[in-house]
Design a binder for these strands. Sequence first.
DNA 1: TTTACGAAGGGTACTGAGTGCCATAGGATT
DNA 2: AATCCTATGGCACTCAGTACCCTTCGTAAA
Lengths: 246, 246
Amino acid sequence: MTEDRRPAKKPPMRDVLAEAAFALFLERGFERTTVDDIVARAGVGRRSFFRYFPSKEDAVFPDHERCLADMTAFLADAEGGDPVATVCDAARLVLRMYAENPEFSVQRYRLTREVPGLRTYELSVVRRYERTLAGHLERRWAEDPSAGPDASLRAEVIAASVVAAHNNGLRSWLRSGGEGDAGAEVDRALELVRAVWGEADERPAAQVGAVQAVSGGDDEVIVMVARKGAPMWRVVQHIESALGSA
Amino acid sequence: MTEDRRPAKKPPMRDVLAEAAFALFLERGFERTTVDDIVARAGVGRRSFFRYFPSKEDAVFPDHERCLADMTAFLADAEGGDPVATVCDAARLVLRMYAENPEFSVQRYRLTREVPGLRTYELSVVRRYERTLAGHLERRWAEDPSAGPDASLRAEVIAASVVAAHNNGLRSWLRSGGEGDAGAEVDRALELVRAVWGEADERPAAQVGAVQAVSGGDDEVIVMVARKGAPMWRVVQHIESALGSA
DNA sequence: TTTACGAAGGGTACTGAGTGCCATAGGATT
DNA sequence: AATCCTATGGCACTCAGTACCCTTCGTAAA
């Protein structure tokens, strides 16, 4: 009834709990804060906490569930283009979530660094992102006859690389206290992965037509002839095999 | 006093507990087994369990602590050669530990797959291996002026790749019920990583001397001149930059 | 207006992991 | 024999997480 007269009539209990929990975690530390402390500050019943958060750790990462859903939706929509570039873009969704609340993200980062239980919990969250990315790569390559028999292996390795690169850039930004451009760090890191594993899309890229090794001068000289349009990892494989038989 | 007359005089309590725990986990499942159940079967006091295992989950992975120490020692001894190849070899130590007890490893794998708490715990263990490998790469490259400014990023990405590749091969072997050659699967997986990221050691490898792009026919043709002796990832970077300016 | 109903929250009691503290036993040392 | 020292057992406690049931309140149907 007072819907339009009081804009902030009733903040959802989930947010109230998350804020109370986080404030207490910063004050006393995660482990010295009990769920009873949290619900006391939030002014709600203890049972309600576990209605909104399956565990105490979940209250520290209240937005990952939504972000994971966003990533899944993003990948479901993505159709064409280089799958590796697509999962790199998907990883940037996570960065964006962190960048939306820099102070919160930095404080949470410091908290997580110090509490082993939170580090472990974060690992399980990161793992879900990684599985989501790997699943997308596998699905894309499952219908691609040129993907090769080791597509599943590549999918897992690339997903792990993307996550590691993303987290490297993200942590670098978090360690700096949220100063500077978070996107630039992560872009640089992801570009390393995309350059190694991705097919080239907008740029011209190489498809190996022939690789041969010849001798020249005192150093061995390799001459590679390549044509554009194929995955970079395959170039590397061809270089390797050519070098092996040189 | 009966040291030499009774070879199996007194099995260490840690082993007794681990065996009792594992047997019960297989019978009733992990979550339906309490620590009281375990110590009852082992015939020891409840307090002793937590003396040997910090948590119930630790009883499922009784040998990872030793394996982690082995890996640390292995990496500390490793001096020359390609750091990437070295961490690949270090990863194989983990495989060897699994292969020492195939039945146990396979049963534990099935158990871990079904219990979320064990999956999460395993992630934290895997993370420690990953950090150990990444630390080695960073240390090796810290003294190498040719390593480049992004050595830390590469270290983390490569460590993640090595772990992902290793686990891909390992899981494939575990899913097969411990049949076949575990080493072959993992070797194949790790070779993919080493081919992409490693310097070549025994094989001749490429050091990029010059990269240029020319036109030929209707497809664009790239001619790369490379000399042996330098990291493969740098070859890729040069190819990328050459293609970008083509 | 009354009744029915379903969603949201509160309260209580319970299980079980993990910890701190102290007691005790058994072997080795002096 | 007195004394350590280490390994172990026993208890009591905290706290996360769960099962079950109760209350409340807004809404829709009668």
